Amino acid sequence: MSASLLFISWVLLSETVLCWSQFHEAFVAEAGRTATLPCRHPFNDSVLVVEWSRSDLGEEYVLLYRDEQIDESNQSPSYLDRVDLQDRLMENGDVSLVLEDTRTYDSGTYQCSVVHRSLGEDEESVICTIQLDVSPSSPPLLPPGDENEDDEYEANDGGNKVAGIPFKETVEGAKEGTIVLLVFFMIVFVIATFQIYKRKVRLHIRL
């Protein structure tokens, strides 16, 4: 096998491994935060256009970057002013997507394609496919003084629970159980004392 053929095979294998590894990556983000979907291209400085898309958006796209700027002509309205490239200079092949103020409906499969110049001609290649799952944000802790006994999260204990029961209710239940136990031991003590007294009286009468 010639050296040139070996080189071409290595390049094709490298690109295949890159796409395969990216496809199997799944990212989880919390709603309201900024998420970065990592992606790199192997085409050096020959990239002319970067497009991030979702299969369920039809003809619309998430982001289209060309002529050194974002093209908003056919961008999905839900992504306007919320997306950008992590590095517009695309140094080291970085074409990662930055998505701000994530929302639950941002969940889906994202695909990154680039148009690059190869042997004097423009070619389009899909380089990354990434699954994003945006989960709802956690309920905020209540400030002191605004606690509600019916709320699941308590400000004083940080929403701690024992066996699914709010921490405050658990403490109150423990106090009630302690009181009942003390009353039980007092009753047993009184009965035992009375029995001992009766026994002494009987012995005294026999004597």
Rank of each mutant, 00 (worst) to 15 (best):
S113Y: 02
S135V: 13
D122T: 10
G120R: 10
K175A: 03
A174D: 08
L132R: 03
Y153F: 12
N160I: 04
D101P: 05
A163I: 07
V180S: 10
F194D: 08
D133W: 01
T102M: 10
G164V: 11
I179P: 00
F189D: 12
C128H: 02
M186Y: 07
F189S: 14
G120P: 14
V183M: 11
G145T: 15
G108E: 00
K161T: 08
G145F: 12
F184A: 11
I130H: 01
D122M: 06
T129R: 06
P143G: 15
T104F: 01
F194M: 11
A155Q: 12
L119W: 11
G173H: 08
D150A: 13
E176D: 03
P136V: 04
E176T: 04
V180Y: 11
E124Y: 03
G108Y: 03
T102S: 12
H116A: 06
D122G: 01
E152F: 08
A163W: 10
K175N: 01
F185P: 00
P136H: 02
G173D: 08
V126E: 05
T193I: 04
N148P: 04
L181C: 13
R103Y: 06
A192I: 04
V180K: 13
T109V: 09
Q111R: 09
E100Y: 06
K175G: 02
E123L: 06
Y153L: 12
E147S: 09
S113N: 07
E121S: 08
G177M: 05
F167H: 07
P140V: 15
L141M: 10
G158R: 02
V180N: 09
G177V: 01
V98A: 05
I127G: 00
I187P: 01
S113K: 11
E176L: 07
G120K: 09
T102D: 07
P140Q: 15
I191N: 02
A163L: 14
E169V: 02
L141W: 06
A174N: 11
D101I: 11
C128K: 02
I127W: 03
P140K: 15
I187Y: 04
A192K: 07
S125D: 09
E100I: 08
V188S: 07
L141T: 07
T193Q: 12
Y110M: 02
F189C: 12
F185A: 04
L99K: 06
Q111I: 04
G173Y: 04
R117G: 02
I165W: 12
G164Y: 10
E176W: 05
T109R: 05
V188G: 03
A163R: 14
G173N: 13
I165N: 13
S113W: 01
F167D: 02
A155T: 11
L119C: 07
E176P: 00
V134T: 09
T193G: 13
E169A: 05
D150K: 14
Q111M: 05
I179H: 04
D101V: 13
L99Q: 04
G173A: 11
P144G: 09
T104H: 02
G177K: 08
I191C: 05
S118P: 00
P136S: 05
G177W: 05
E147K: 04
S118M: 04
F194A: 14
Q131P: 00
D122Y: 06
I191V: 11
F184R: 10
Q111S: 08
P140W: 12
A163D: 15
V188F: 11
C128A: 13
S113E: 09
G108R: 02
C128G: 01
V171N: 06
E149P: 08
F194S: 11
D101T: 15
